[in-house]
């Protein structure tokens, strides 16, 4: 019958000894990466909504992109965010050496810079709200806030996670479990940079293009 007639049944290996050889860390990081990709689908849905609701009909005679975005403020946010990622990269370089102090310093730096990003974004939004540009104003503003804040919410969550990981690194050192979580957090944190590229390009820069 068999498509595998070439395996000789007399000498074939039937059992595999020596315990399971699955790589726990790689399995964990891969699953987490899959989660991030599914999250990217949510972001894509939000971008699709933003595009559809970007039509001037959807501004409901209210402000449209050109009135709402402040690309220069967003650029300072960009600098902070990318620096936060770089700081996390520093932690990863420290981890490679098994250097606990460097890892803690990198995580701490990422925390502070990430919080800085949220501060810049929050100040921008507070100003918009002062001018009556709130999500309830129009379909366009609903889509704008939701998209940008979805990224922001991830950073809030990331800060919480960084704090937890600092505690774990300090208390438990570099166990396999702590390490896979640091690697997952790396994926998470770097991924927010990815998402921000598109938010910055297609919300802030593109929005500013249409100011006449």
């Amino acid at each position: 019958m068999s498509q595998d007639a070439h395996v000789d049944s007399a000498t074939a290996v039937l059992w595999d000894r020596g315990g399971t050889k699955h790589d726990m860390i790689a399995t964990r990081t891969f699953g987490f990466w899959l989660y991030l990709l599914s999250d990217a689908m949510i972001v894509s849905s939000l971008f699709a909504s933003y595009l559809v609701l970007g039509h001037r009909v959807n501004a409901a005679a209210g402000p449209s992109a050109g009135d709402v975005v402040h690309p220069i403020a967003a650029f300072w946010g960009t600098v902070l965010l990318f620096s936060a990622i770089l700081a996390y990269g520093g932690a990863m370089v420290g981890l490679k050496r098994g250097d606990r102090r460097a890892v803690l310093a990198g995580l701490g730096g990422a925390f502070v810079l990430g919080a800085g990003f949220l501060f810049v974004e929050g100040r921008d939004f507070a100003e918009l709200a002062l001018h009556g540009m709130v999500p309830e104003r129009s379909g366009y503003l609903s889509a704008f806030y939701t998209l940008v804040l979805y990224h922001g919410a991830h950073l809030v969550f990331g800060l919480l996670w960084i704090a937890v990981m600092m505690a774990q690194v300090a208390r438990q050192g570099f166990t396999a479990n702590v390490i896979y979580r640091l690697l997952n957090l790396k994926l998470f944190w770097f991924f927010q940079g990815f998402v921000w590229i598109y938010v910055f390009s297609f919300v802030y820069l593109t929005g500013a293009l249409h100011v006449h």
């Binding site: 520093g90 370089v93 981890l95 490679k96």
Partner: peptide, 13 residues
């Protein structure tokens, strides 16, 4: 040693 895991070793300053 988990620190020798290839994904840890990916880091490049």
């Amino acid at each position: 040693d988990p620190l020798q895991h290839p994904e840890v070793q990916l880091a490049r300053g």
